[in-house]
């Protein structure tokens, strides 16, 4: 099955106390951003695991996951070459001793793709939209800063990974433009799940799933007001990021110019 995944649906299972989850179904469509919130140990990872495995009442939670409104076939569930979820976890650095351009080429090859002309440049260009410090293809991965590494990881997942679902885990302290990062992933038509406690990220979504005691207890559609607040919070943060860059460049910060940008409504 090589059909494109345009939608996944979560059907209710049970929580840690064995009680049925109180919702009919949750649809997540291509290009949507969904936050998963709840206390540590509430069961956020179990939900991600269910989605990754395309659970069919055969995991602890007894949830069922549909793909494009259908029960996914075995090939999609168990073929190790088809990994459904690409994740941007907490890792801030690369391990590989290699130039950025060569590494991206290697990643492309490992996916069995031929290096499309210009794609690697495109990945780097997009990464540079997310970080304040420009990355070039000749830089060594090991020498990238935390923010550069993170930006490159995001752009790589958006452009090279074939996984249709992207999981973002606690991206908050990465020193990158978060809003821009999410935008790039959304533009590539991924389904995005964000596990986070960060208000500016959690509110910059289409909906959020609230988890308690191993069960989904609520699904909230993000209101226009909340999106506005997210945008405002992001603005404050990007403001801090600019100052951070100036400090790194050795500049003195003796006065700050605060300017306010009007809220752009989405679509």
């Amino acid at each position: 099955m090589n059909k494109e995944i345009t939608k996944i649906t979560i059907l209710p299972g049970i929580n840690k106390l064995g009680e049925k989850e109180n919702f009919k179904k949750i649809d997540i469509k291509k290009g949507e951003v969904v936050a998963i919130v709840g206390h540590t140990g509430a069961g956020k990872s179990q939900l991600l695991y269910d989605i990754e495995r395309l659970a069919q009442k055969d995991t602890k939670s007894k949830r069922k996951i549909l793909v494009n409104d259908e029960i996914p076939d075995k090939e999609l569930r168990f073929n190790p070459k088809r990994k459904l979820i690409a994740s941007l976890a907490q890792s801030m650095n690369f391990f590989t001793d290699m130039a950025v351009g060569d590494f991206l080429k290697l990643h492309l090859e490992s996916r069995g793709k031929k290096s499309k002309k210009g794609l690697i440049e495109e990945v780097i260009k997009e990464a540079n939209k997310i970080t304040g410090e420009a990355i070039s293809s000749k830089m060594n991965l090991l020498n990238l800063s935390g923010g550069q590494s993170r930006a490159l990881m995001v752009s790589d997942v958006a452009n090279i990974s074939v996984s249709p679902i992207v999981l973002i885990d606690e991206i908050e302290n990465a020193g990158i433009k978060k809003e821009e990062a999410i935008k790039i992933l959304v533009e590539e038509g991924k389904i995005i799940l964000i596990v986070t406690h960060d208000p500016s990220l959690a509110l910059n979504t289409d909906k959020r799933i609230i988890i308690k005691n191993g069960g989904i207890v609520d699904v909230l559609n993000t209101s226009l007001k909340e999106k506005g607040i997210a945008h405002y919070l992001n603005w404050i943060e990007s403001f801090g990021l600019d100052i951070r860059e100036k400090i790194r460049k050795g500049k003195k910060i003796e006065n700050v110019e605060i300017y306010c940008e009007p809220i752009k409504s989405k679509k």
């Binding site: 190790p80 070459k81 990994k83 690409a86 994740s87 941007l88 976890a89 907490q90 890792s91 690369f94 391990f95 590989t96 590494f103 991206l104 290697l106 990643h107 490992s110 996916r111 590494s149 990881m153 790589d156 997942v157 090279i160 990974s161």
Partner: peptide
Amino acid sequence: GDLISQAEREIFRAKVLKVNPKAKIT
């Protein structure tokens, strides 16, 4: 796997399958 990037994970996976194509990977 949580210690490294998605790209490196995918490259690693491909390399494992190259030396052991029959393996079930998890």
